[in-house]
Write a protein that binds this DNA or RNA. Structure first.
Lengths: 246, 246
DNA sequence: CATAATTTGTCCGTATGTATC
DNA sequence: GGATACATACGGACAAATTAT
């Protein structure tokens, strides 16, 4: 690794990546493959450096990036740990709806429906073939005692075998990681204001035509593949969605 | 600086900051104070290191952070430059509304109204006294040929003297920086779905009661003070707001 | 067009401080 | 207190990109 072909050649190859990024990729892959599991401590920086035959500084830079991506957590004096999808992290990274006059809070969930079958639209969003089997989960979420979010979650059935026959917990991303080895790395959301239809209005306890915030999320696994498509309809009369621009 | 009092004492002071962060603060202050202006090249890393009597690696780490915060831009072989609020940056960092079936685009603006006076609500948002003078700018913005955003922008009059008597350009953050020495560093937005009122509906060409996306933004200067409060009402029938979760 | 100078990017190695067990 | 781990700081060597000569 130290005397990488990329560096020896006069010209860098087209697909050249810096050494620290190659190291990063190796470490990410170990997490994605479950070699190092959620919450587990990584080997120390000098150990990783010795194993991969790079300098400690290079490992440090790779871990710096992974820390910035929320893939690992570093604790001085203790070690570096694979980030867990615990409630606190989900709350800050993936749940952006906050009660207007109160603090951040993890919503309860009630499952309405869980089916599997053909769903061309969802399959397209998830990058599957039109006829690949898709799981569809409908649920309603409660914030500060009020039904607040109605959401439909679509998943590639192939990645989550047996999910239909299982109790579905509140924290889905933890379930994906712990039970199916699918770790969500990041997600991209598209927001619109829409009018409530009859069925939606009934679930959320609002009038038909009332404005709702529609959040269309595509979530990606650590290897950058789309693995969840989620559409949430949110009441925003007593809550708001936060977005920080930096 | 090298033999900082913080380091000599056996115990770190309560308000201790790492050296590279102290360096960062000095450099940020120079940008905030206009010593180094937008687009200007900074001295080279070894020069800054020599001037502040720290090692080049420490300056490098300070600049790394500032790069991550979009305060400076580094270009290999050329130098490090103070980030400009040019259209491209505004478009990616601060304008999150994208046409559904097209690419990112910088919206046109038409000023409806520009007044100054007492405004307790805006003053409170901006951290001013209730009776401090506030500038209020109303404008309407066009995306893909369609009136799309109706927004009200509130500013502390004390920071923007003479703004009322001036032509107001499309790119406000550039104006703040170039003409008034106020650089926006980051912003925080709260989103809700609301129903259009009569006046709003007329401006945006929709029916009364139609759902609109209400974006409530507080923007902060480099020294972390709130300097702009902006409420935007957006049509989202042919556009959407994007938010990346990482 | 070729070369040199400048600047950031990458990589390396060491020493010391701080937190935890 | 000692051992271990990460955090900080330092400084140097070479590569890559750009600009000036």
């Amino acid at each position: 690794m130290k005397h990488d072909a990329m560096h020896m050649a006069g010209k860098p190859t087209l697909g050249f990546r810096p050494l620290y990024r190659q190291v990063r990729d190796i470490l990410v892959k170990r997490i994605a493959d479950g070699v190092w599991q959620a919450g587990q401590m990584l080997p120390s920086e000098p150990e990783i450096a010795a194993e991969l035959d790079v300098s400690p500084g290079t490992v440090r830079k790779a871990l710096d990036e992974m820390t910035a991506e929320n893939l690992v957590v570093r604790r001085q004096g203790r070690g570096t740990f694979v980030a867990k999808h615990d409630d606190a992290r989900i709350l800050f990274q993936f749940f952006k709806l906050i009660p207007d006059s109160s603090v951040r809070e993890f919503p309860d969930s009630k499952v309405l429906n869980l089916t599997s079958g053909i769903n061309p639209e969802a399959a397209s969003q998830l990058g599957l073939g039109r006829r690949d089997c898709v799981l569809v989960l409908d649920r309603i979420r409660t914030l500060a005692g009020q039904a607040c979010v109605l959401e439909r979650i679509c998943l590639p059935a192939a990645l989550f075998p047996g999910l239909e026959k299982r109790e579905v917990p509140n924290n889905l991303y933890q379930l994906y990681a712990m039970e199916f080895g699918v770790t969500i790395g990041h997600a991209s959301e598209k927001l619109k204001a829409v009018a409530a239809t009859g069925e939606e209005a009934q679930h959320l306890g609002v009038a038909v035509g009332e404005p709702l915030l529609r959040v269309d999320r595509l979530a990606f696994s650590l290897d950058q593949r789309p693995v969840e498509w989620r559409v949430s309809l949110c009441r925003t009369d007593q809550a708001h969605y936060i977005s920080d621009l930096r």
